[in-house]
């Protein structure tokens, strides 16, 4: 198992190197940063001097190496637009996105699994069929439309919840949190539903179909034949056996919650990294874009690694270090 972990970490490192190359290429091929940084009034000497200070006169591999070592230390250079270190800007914005993603992910997983189990157990019940029909909306409507509809209903018509922003935030050790104020919590409701709805319905439908499959298995019949309580059969025996495929999909979906928070953040003007990225694209702020790309890829690679390790925790058959004895 240790060998497997080492192998997976090694593969992850390769993925990050490749993504780093793509991010780095943006500096090289999407316009000349020197042009952007110096104004119209410039001499050839200015240009040469800036090239030397930025290290742009060095060979490509050396520049790439420098980019990677800097990135590994969290140094992504200076934002072209704001003139501040990119890492500072990201640190400022990250709490908003991470809190939004955490709430969305939590809603998606708990409600998704709960409803999935419910609709599988009450397969032919009226409520289960109604939930399955409604879930089609979550799967098929685009995120921005759901966001706009929610704003229309709950902010414009009913006036219950704020339509944009994070509300009041409290600074806790450099982390600005919206969890501690009532306006912060209210502001979280609509965006987190918008962001998590697709994942929730996806997880629910997956859990349901896996659960229906597992409930047909002999060991479930045998568990029933031994007179175990219905709850033990459904949750201890059946749900656990559905978890391996569910974790695979859920892990990837959590990654996309963070990555695709862009749309939700735009709709709700949520001051997170997604909105930062959209603005960076508009102004061709390449250091910010590169840093965002690296950040998201680290997140995906990390989640994938955790998912692979969770398989071992759940399914004893995968733990190869214990060999079968007869």
């Amino acid at each position: 198992m240790l060998a497997y972990v080492i192998q997976r970490v090694f593969q992850s490192a390769i993925v990050l190197l490749v993504v780093g190359l793509v991010a780095f290429s943006m500096f090289r091929f999407v316009g000349d940063p020197v042009d952007n940084m110096l104004g119209q009034e410039r001499t050839q000497a200015d240009i040469e001097r800036l090239r030397t200070t930025l290290g742009l006169d060095q060979p490509f591999p050396v520049q790439y190496y420098k980019f990677l070592t800097n990135a590994a230390q969290g140094n992504f250079g200076v934002s072209y637009r704001q003139g501040r270190p990119v890492s500072d800007i990201l640190m400022e914005r990250a709490p908003a996105t991470l809190e939004l993603a955490a709430v969305s992910g939590f809603l998606a997983i708990t409600i998704g699994i709960g409803l999935g189990v419910f609709t599988a157990i009450r397969r032919n019940g009226f409520a289960a069929n109604a939930i399955m029909s409604i879930s089609l909306i979550g799967v098929s409507l685009p995120t921005f439309l759901i966001g706009i509809l929610l704003i229309y209903l709950f902010s414009v018509e009913l006036g219950w919840l704020p339509s944009f922003g994070r509300g009041e935030t409290v600074d806790v050790g450099g982390w600005s949190t919206g969890f501690l104020t009532s306006s912060g919590l209210q502001a979280l409701i609509l965006p987190s539903i918008t962001l998590g709805l697709y994942q929730m319905t996806l997880i629910m439908r997956l859990v349901r179909s896996e659960m229906l499959e597992v409930l047909r298995q002999d060991y479930i019949r045998f568990a029933r034949a031994r007179g175990l309580r219905e709850r033990a059969v459904n949750f201890r025996h059946a749900l656990k056996n559905t978890l391996v495929p569910v974790i695979t999909v859920t892990g990837l979906q959590l990654g996309s919650i963070i990555a695709f928070a862009i749309i939700t953040e735009t709709v709700f003007q949520w001051p997170g990294v997604g909105l930062l990225f959209i603005n960076a694209i508009q102004f061709v702020d390449i250091p910010v874009m590169a840093a965002y790309l690296m950040l998201i890829s680290v997140m995906f690679v990390g989640i994938n690694l955790i998912v692979d390790l969770l398989y071992f925790a759940i399914d004893p058959r995968l733990r190869a270090d214990r060999t079968a004895a007869h």
């Binding site: 002999d218 019949r221 045998f222 007179g227 656990k240």
Partner: peptide, 24 residues
């Protein structure tokens, strides 16, 4: 009926490879 199953009537199925929960 559940109280009866296992307690008064036990059952053995055909295929031992599939009648045990693989994760417990």
């Amino acid at each position: 009926m559940r109280r009866l199953r296992g307690k008064q009537i036990g059952m053995v199925f055909q295929d031992p490879l599939t009648s045990l929960n693989p994760l417990l």
